[in-house]
Design a protein around this nucleic acid. Structure first.
Lengths: 190, 190
DNA sequence: CGAGCGCTTGATTGAGTTCAAAAATCGTGG
DNA sequence: CCACGATTTTTGAACTCAATCAAGCGCTCG
């Protein structure tokens, strides 16, 4: 899968609803720094990243950002699960990007009604996301700052190079200062 | 949904595979304390809790347990996502329970091949799980011991009463001592 | 009834935070 | 292409929350 449209094209006999949805999907070029969605917004969209890099994050009561996930090429990012419901995530653009944007509700209705391979695909995508989150929870519960950092560098080396360190710290759940110290610490060791 | 069998019964015209699978699902009564699965085991099963309470957890290198989730009545619990793949979770029984047990691979094959309402159901279940995990990650990244505890008591009051406090601490990612102190602290306040 | 487990409480320690300021890097306009 | 301001990273010192260590209490159940 490399686009929302691909998914819809899987249906060889598109209904009028599918066709209507296809017309509403537009590829947009969006500049770095743009905020696509704020926690608390009522409108909620799904973003398919064709090119570039997005992130989702919360802001806690003390005003501190906590990055929930990064979304590079070919990732879907949205508040809540892939489609439905809750929570209060912000989403913004870290690199100039090309993104497909669809209304969440609309997409969900049509998408779920499609019954074919895309079902297996969607299931696989959700399973992957659950696995990633499971690993993340375990990491947050049991790993020290150093362990988290080393896990990140080996798991997401591509993202490492594309975002400032303070954002990696934010993703790991530690302060930028702590991350800096971790790095200098592990440099001493060699 | 209140059983694996219900899911399979949704298919009004069961294939021979479905029938074969149905025969392999057995309802077992299992006593408190029994370990169903150890991290590292190759066999992997899916457990549907009809009655009772299970938990899944990891054990870190220092030998400490970290509870990943509790599974009371009508929950499905398994290593990794609902069906497939990775990670190293232990699963054991906290209360005398009645459980349906199915081989993960077998179930996945048959289940995924079923295309009907159950698809929507499965999707909904996965979305819910993703939402729960999202909330958990945010909690672990931004909340203090007290906040985590208060969130847990309001969100899972039923489970509160059924497990020892040290397990709640383990779920929250804090030590039993810390949880004890949090409680006495919040009692002072009133 | 005693042994073991779970919960509490206190003293000590330590990893990571906070605050502050200097050093390095980035980016933008001239 | 350079220069300057802004942002990011590093470093250091003081502090804080929770972990660790240790002891005592109360219950259960064997």
């Amino acid at each position: 899968m490399s686009s929302f449209l691909d998914i819809l094209d899987l249906d060889t006999n598109p209904t009028t609803e599918v066709l209507a949805l296809k017309q509403k999907i537009s590829l947009k070029s969006i500049k770095k720094g743009r905020i696509l969605q704020r926690g608390g917004d009522m409108v909620s969209k799904i973003y398919y990243v064709k090119k570039g890099l997005l992130r989702s994050y919360t802001i806690d009561k003390k005003g501190k950002e906590h990055i929930f996930m990064f979304a590079p090429e070919d990732w879907i990012i949205a508040d809540g699960a892939d489609f439905s419901s809750p929570c209060q995530l912000f989403i913004d653009v870290l690199e100039d990007s090309e993104i497909e944007i669809v209304d969440k509700k609309l997409f969900e209705e049509v998408y779920i009604s499609l019954t074919l391979n895309s079902d297996t695909q969607r299931t696989a995508a959700m399973i992957k996301r659950i696995s990633v989150l499971q690993e993340r929870v375990i990491m947050l519960m049991s790993a020290s700052a150093i362990e988290r950092y080393e896990h990140f560098t080996t798991t997401y080396p591509q993202i490492m190079q594309r975002v400032p360190q303070r954002m990696i710290a934010s993703y790991l759940g530690i302060t930028p200062e702590a991350l800096s110290k971790v790095k200098s610490e592990q440099n001493k060791g060699k």
